[in-house]
Design a protein around this nucleic acid. Structure first.
Lengths: 199, 199
DNA sequence: GTCTATACAAAGATAGAC
DNA sequence: GTCTATCTTTGTATAGAC
């Protein structure tokens, strides 16, 4: 009856669904799985999200939006150098890397991309494009400022390379059960792009 | 009745199943999908592979084995330099990259890794470990021979980086429908590691 | 080795009471 | 907004004829 509790159900469904997709993918999970974790019954989910596709789309959209807000905050912060921004960008990947069985939501969905509803495909594509653009902007700024070491490289190519490597590292760290995998990649990336204070 | 025809059915099932998984993942496909493409009925598949998990495992095992044979042939060929071997390694990725909706089998399976049968997980993990070891060996040889530019880098770290980037590039090229994505990454990798003949 | 027929469980989704 | 009950389809798998 308290209205505040009820409004949160839609949000809790999104959180649980996201967590499950990051672990197991989209086609392997069901309303039943989600309902159990939220502590409700299957039809209650349908009340909030008309279909599994609609729920899936809402999950990716929210994830993408949250990520973008964070990235924009960093990019706009006048106290942050391009090197700071790049280092901050790595943090969520390091966080996923530190878990045993979670990866980026959109990385998880990419394996079964062609078996995803069209509306979800659109959101996943937009996620990667957001990140490509953002990274490209940071690298370009860092090259002009000399805050980053982007010398013989096209910023667009470097951005794609970084994005490819980070997402690849997540799927491989989980498949090979290698806890240090992502950390080692990020160390390499930092060594390459971020001018070290000791050198 | 001709025995030669019948023996091939098991093989054709593997080929079709692999193709479907590379496009849509494991949990999104069914015996029905496979049977239709092979031109048989569902129960005929079960005759060759006792369960979906058994079929899935056979698909990955065969893929891994074929890939490894190719890699070993290249590595053992005395006429091939480390640079040749690395360039050859990129070819299958470029081939996947040239398709609209196919990626590496093990990359496709990695998104839903935790929702895979244990026996499949083992094969997928072994695939990535095979490739890590092989790349590491080639890079180490190339560094000693001076056939490759691996200077300030640990060969193990460089191998992981290359593997991460290639698999990441496949999932992102498909999600963003970017036909040149993998080619651009491979160009970057070649520029970095393979001493160009013109410079 | 392939088929028809069928068992059985799980999935997404709907109807309607509370 | 949540529930029970149910519909319908699809999935994996089995039984047994040919």
């Amino acid at each position: 009856m308290p209205r505040t509790e009820q409004t949160n159900t839609a949000e809790r469904i999104l959180e649980v669904a996201q967590d499950l997709i990051q672990r197991r993918g989209y086609n392997a999970i069901s309303f039943e799985d989600i309902a159990k974790k939220v502590g409700i019954k299957k039809p209650s989910i349908v009340h909030h999200y008309a279909s599994k596709a609609a729920l899936g789309r809402a999950v990716v959209r929210r994830y993408r939006s949250n990520f973008s807000s964070m990235l924009d905050d960093i990019a706009r912060d006048p106290e942050k150098t391009a090197a700071d921004a790049l280092a901050f960008y790595f943090v969520p990947y390091l966080d996923f890397g530190a878990t045993k069985d979670k990866i980026c939501l959109c990385g998880a969905l990419s394996g079964e991309f062609m078996a995803l509803p069209k509306t979800m495909q659109t959101e996943v594509a937009a996620f990667f494009q957001d990140h490509q653009s953002w990274l490209e902007g940071i690298l370009r700024r860092g090259r002009e400022n000399k805050e980053l070491q982007v010398v013989d490289e096209d910023p667009a190519a470097a951005a794609a390379w970084i994005l490819d490597a980070l997402h690849g590292s997540l799927i491989i760290k989980r498949a090979t059960n290698d806890p240090g995998h992502v950390q080692r990649l990020v160390d390499s990336l930092k060594a390459k792009y971020i001018r070290s204070s000791s050198g």
